[in-house]
Every structure is written in structure tokens, then in C-alpha cells.
Design a protein around this nucleic acid. Structure first.
Length: 546
DNA sequence: AAGGGAAACAACCGCACTTTA
DNA sequence: ATAAAGTGCGGTTGTTTCCCT
């Protein structure tokens, strides 16, 4: 990648938009006045001119490039070309697993702050990262996989708690404002239409309007459902220029302050995870280990479930959001915990699904994030790398003990609940994280991938209680990769991660491998600070970087 | 071998913030 | 104080490449 797309025609005139006269630069620059500015791919000649110019005049004042060099490119284009392709110390090639991991972690915390993320990835450009991410989420979305590995999710969640406390202490803090903005508006937002009516997590998110670390918090907790609480009008936040120190110590938090890890809680949390196709990488009982974690979440476009269904159902709140998020979490919450019922239309969709599918699972809630659907319906999408590796482990016959809840039952109950709880939960300042979310984790396990347990699927629509919150915290702690450090389970966790690696798309493989190995890139000294170009290690050096 | 779809990549666009005159 | 210029960022789109059927 990263090869320059110069046409190398060296004629300085890329065939395509050669003359697409873009008096261009409507927005910025364009002060050159040369009139016709080129667009489209850069040629090597143009590159040479630009490089030469920068050597002589340095960076900046991009609009002057045209004047001084005769380059028929707007300053904006020059800057972009330089930044993304010509500047020294650019790191070429595919992202390393460490980088991928870091990107995921950063995105979990920052959301779509590509430039800021790039600052943490020496030699990488925001555009590169953005492209990577967009491709990644697209792939994961299609596969119905969570965007963030559990450890990152929980990590962000924990930080969210911390930040919440901070915000409580200093509400007027400018930084806090920033966090607020980002939490509320910087929401990754892939739209999962089918979740729109599911406000369980909404309340969850609503209770944390000021959780920092935004990205994952708003995504994970708010994710497809939470965004609903985000008023469309809230987007007023106009990119507060955040300093790189916005999250001081944020990197360090990844590898530091390891929470305690209580193996005794593993099993219970496993139960929680299974419905979502998630399998804890920490299995104290290897023998009972489900060889096909995520088995259900592998494929399947679950289009109708994962955001591609009709948007016909009127939403009372904002809808358009950016990235999808923690589907396992959202699935959690979705999955009938405090989460309100799915839109009836989704139920309809479900009910209309082939009987065979329904037969595989008596309880395929259509409103699950897709992971669950995958568990239930099995692979549907082909030609997806991430799925390819998973398909082998996926069988429609994956044991799903959901016998206690039939679709009809669910329908009845959900319909009833829908009427009763329509948007009610998130109006409750208490329900969110304190109760609902946790209760979701601890109680909403209507089905299980494994037939080992979950004899009694539970559909709990009430808010849960404080105890649940406590339990949630506990669960979360041991989910964190850093919690694994020093854990006896580490080794087997890693083995498990390897299993996952064989099953999941490579990015996820990396996620888990690193999570299990505790090899957080944050600890690799890439540091907090930004990486101005001139501070970047040479390309060769970077390439040597693990 | 050809066609189609997805992924990867590059570049553009619009907006907002900052700097400067 | 204000307008214009310059810059940066995020979103989107277009093109190329790769892979599968």
C-alpha cells in the first residue's frame, strides 16, 4: 500500500482529471489564482516538484507552492500529498499487529479522531488509519463481529467510570467540556436500525453523559442503541481542538493499574458472553471450553439485524451516527436485559424468517446485534476473510439452549414490554450503568451457545440493582487483558487466544493475542505525545519497530 | 478466463479553527 | 475588531487491485 498513485506518466497530466478545471479550493487556499488547478492522482513529476519545494522552503504556506513552483495544485492538495505520501519518515506497508491493536484501542477512546490517533502511530497518517478503520468496521460489521475486543471495551468502560468521577468533580472544566462533547457527539455511528427502538443501553449511556474516553463508551454503551439518546441537534460541538494531552495517562492506564482478577467469576461471565457469541478467553475449565468462540458471530450479514433493515420505523431520537461499536455489549444490553423490546418490525422480520432458521433456535431475537443472530443462523456471508476462517467452526447446529423462550413468547413479552417501557428507561437516571447495564450482563442470558448451562434463559426487563452493578464491575475486571498479567490463567488464555486467532479475522486475532499476552502496545513506549513529522523515526527505523 | 464484489488506497470536499493583516 | 488567508480534520468518493465464483 502506500505506493503513490502517481500515474508515472510523467507528463504531469494524469489522464483522468487533467483538466477538470477546479478553480478549486473553494474552501481554502486556492489563492494562487492560477485558475486551473489539477485534481486527481499526482504524477511523479508533481511529487518531485513538491518535494523540491518543501526542501527549499519548508512545510507550510502551501498555497505558495503553486506560486513558487508552478505546480498546478492547490495548497490543500499539496499539503495532503506531502503529509500522506511525500514527507519523510512515513511508514509504508500494512499495519503491524501492534499498530492494529493500538488503533483499536485508540479508536475505542477517541472515536474518529484520526489525526490524533495518527499522532500515536509514528509514520502513519490519519488517512491511512481512517481507511484502515473504515475497511475494518465494514468487514466486521458484515461479519457481525464486535469492533472492539472485550478487553478494550472494558478498558474504556473503566476509564469511563473514572472520567465520570472526574467530571463530577469539575463540571466546568474545559477539558471536561471536551470530553462531554466527544462523548455525546463523537459517537461512532454505524446505524443499526433494528436497534433503534432498543433503549436499554440508552439509559445506560444517558447516565454517563460525561464519560470520557468517548469512543468506546458511547459506542459500547451507547452503541447502536445509545445513539438514540443523542439528540441530533447536539452535534453543535465544533471540533474542539483537543490537545494531545487530553488524555494524560490514558496510555499508561492500559498497562497500569491492573485490576484484580477473580477466576471464580469467569464462569458466570462466560454465561453472559455466550449469548453474544463471545467466549471468554479466560476459561478456567479448559475441558469445557467451547472450541468455537464467536462461532455464532462469524458470518452472516445479518443485514436485517445489523443495521440494514428498514428504517421505516420512526425514531424518536437521533439516528445517524458513526461507528458501530461494541456489539457484544450492545448485544448484551440488547439481549433483553434492561433493553426494551425490539421494534416490532424486527420481530416481524424474524417471524417471517424461514422456519428452518427459527427451528434452529427457538429464540433468535431479531434485535440482537448480529452476533447472536450469527450464533443462531449461522454463516450467510461468503467471501469474507474474517468469515472464511470462522465458517469452519460454525455449524447451524450449534447448541443453543433457548428452549425456554420461544419466539412467540418473546414476541408476546417484548410487545408488552415495548408498550410499557417505550423510551422510559433512559429517562431514569439510575438505570443506566449502575443497574441496567450490569443487569444485562448478569441476567440477560436468554440463550447460550453452549448447552452446558443456561438452563433458564432469563428475560429481565427490569432495571436490575446495585448488586448487579457490582457484579458487572467484577466481570469487567477480569475481562481486561491487563488483568491477565500475573494471572495463572494467562497461559491458557493465550492458547485460547490462539484458538480465536484461528477463527477470527486477523485483526481480531491480533486483538486477542495481544490481549492475552498482555502485550499492549501502549507499553511499548510509543508514548503519549504527538509525533510531529520531524520527530518521527526514519522509515527504516520504524519498520524495525515491533 | 472472465465477471463481479470487496478491499485497499488515494484524493477531494466541506467545515471549522487559527493566524495574520 | 474583523475579514481573509492558511491550515487541519473528518467524511466521502473514485480508482485500482485482489480474490472468488
Amino acid at each position: 500500500m502506500s505506493h503513490t498513485t502517481t500515474n508515472d506518466s510523467d507528463d504531469g497530466m494524469p489522464r483522468d482529471r487533467i483538466n477538470s478545471p477546479s478553480i478549486d479550493e473553494g474552501s481554502s487556499g486556492g489563492s494562487g489564482g492560477a485558475g486551473v488547478l489539477k485534481k486527481g492522482p499526482w504524477t511523479s513529476t508533481e511529487d518531485a516538484i513538491l518535494v523540491d519545494y518543501v526542501k527549499k522552503h519548508g512545510e507550510g504556506n502551501w498555497n505558495a507552492v503553486q506560486k513558487h513552483s508552478g505546480l498546478l495544485r492547490c495548497g490543500k492538495s499539496c499539503r495532503l500529498r506531502w503529509a500522506n505520501h511525500l514527507r519523510p519518515n512515513l511508514k509504508k506497508g500494512a499495519f503491524t499487529p501492534e499498530e492494529e491493536r493500538l488503533i483499536i484501542e485508540l479508536h475505542a477512546k477517541m472515536g474518529n479522531k484520526w489525526a490524533r490517533m495518527a499522532a500515536h502511530l509514528p509514520g502513519r497518517t490519519d488517512n491511512e488509519i481512517k481507511n484502515y478503520w473504515n475497511t475494518r468496521i465494514k468487514r466486521l460489521q458484515r461479519a457481525g463481529l464486535p469492533l472492539y475486543p472485550p478487553d478494550i471495551c472494558l478498558q474504556a468502560l473503566n476509564e469511563g467510570h473514572q472520567n465520570q468521577n472526574v467530571s463530577e468533580l469539575s463540571g466546568s472544566d474545559a477539558r471536561n467540556n471536551d470530553l462531554l462533547q466527544r462523548n455525546n457527539y463523537d459517537i461512532p455511528d454505524v446505524v443499526f436500525d433494528n436497534y433503534k427502538a432498543c433503549q436499554g443501553p440508552l439509559s445506560y449511556a444517558a447516565a454517563f453523559p460525561d464519560i470520557s474516553g468517548s469512543g468506546i463508551m458511547t459506542q459500547a454503551l451507547g452503541s447502536s442503541q445509545n445513539y438514540i439518546i443523542m439528540p441530533p441537534t447536539v452535534h453543535q460541538t465544533k471540533r474542539p481542538r483537543e490537545s494531545d494531552a487530553l488524555f494524560p495517562g490514558f496510555l499508561g492506564s492500559v498497562s497500569n493499574g491492573l485490576p484484580s482478577f477473580d477466576p471464580s467469576q469467569i464462569e458466570s461471565f462466560k454465561k453472559i458472553c455466550r449469548p453474544f457469541g463471545l467466549e471468554l478467553p479466560y476459561d478456567p475449565y479448559p475441558n469445557s471450553k467451547n472450541p468455537a468462540p464467536f462461532s455464532g458471530s462469524t458470518t452472516g450479514s445479518h443485514a436485517p439485524l445489523n443495521g440494514n433493515i428498514s428504517t421505516s420505523k420512526p425514531l424518536s431520537k437521533a439516528v445517524k451516527l458513526e461507528l458501530p461499536s461494541l456489539q457484544y455489549l450492545e448485544t448484551d444490553t440488547n439481549y433483553w436485559g434492561t433493553c426494551p423490546p425490539p421494534p416490532l418490525e424486527t420481530m416481524d422480520a424474524y417471524l417471517q424468517s424461514p422456519p428452518a432458521m427459527q427451528a434452529q433456535s427457538d429464540c433468535p431475537p431479531p434485535w440482537n446485534s448480529g452476533l447472536l443472530e450469527e450464533v443462531i443462523h449461522g454463516p450467510r456471508v461468503k467471501n469474507q476473510s474474517s468469515e472464511k476462517s470462522l465458517n469452519s467452526s460454525v455449524t447451524p447446529a450449534d447448541p443453543i439452549d433457548n428452549s425456554s423462550l420461544t419466539p412467540a413468547d418473546a414476541m408476546d413479552k417484548l410487545t408488552l414490554e415495548l408498550q410499557e417501557t417505550e423510551w422510559g428507561d433512559y429517562g431514569d437516571p439510575i438505570s443506566p450503568l449502575g443497574c441496567s447495564a450490569s443487569s444485562v450482563f448478569s441476567e440477560c442470558t436468554p440463550i447460550s451457545v453452549s448447552s452446558l448451562d443456561e438452563t433458564a434463559p432469563v428475560i429481565v426487563f427490569h432495571g436490575g440493582g446495585k448488586e448487579d452493578s457490582t457484579r458487572l464491575d467484577k466481570h469487567m475486571k477480569f475481562l481486561r487483558p491487563d488483568a491477565l498479567l500475573g494471572s495463572d490463567c494467562l497461559e491458557q488464555d493465550f492458547d485460547y487466544a490462539k484458538d480465536l486467532a484461528a477463527l477470527l479475522s486477523e485483526d481480531f486475532c491480533n486483538d486477542y493475542k495481544y490481549a492475552a499476552s498482555g502485550t499492549s502496545t501502549f507499553s511499548q513506549g510509543w508514548g503519549l505525545g504527538s509525533f510531529p513529522w520531524n520527530n518521527m523515526p526514519a522509515v527504516c527505523q520504524m519498520s524495525e519497530h515491533p
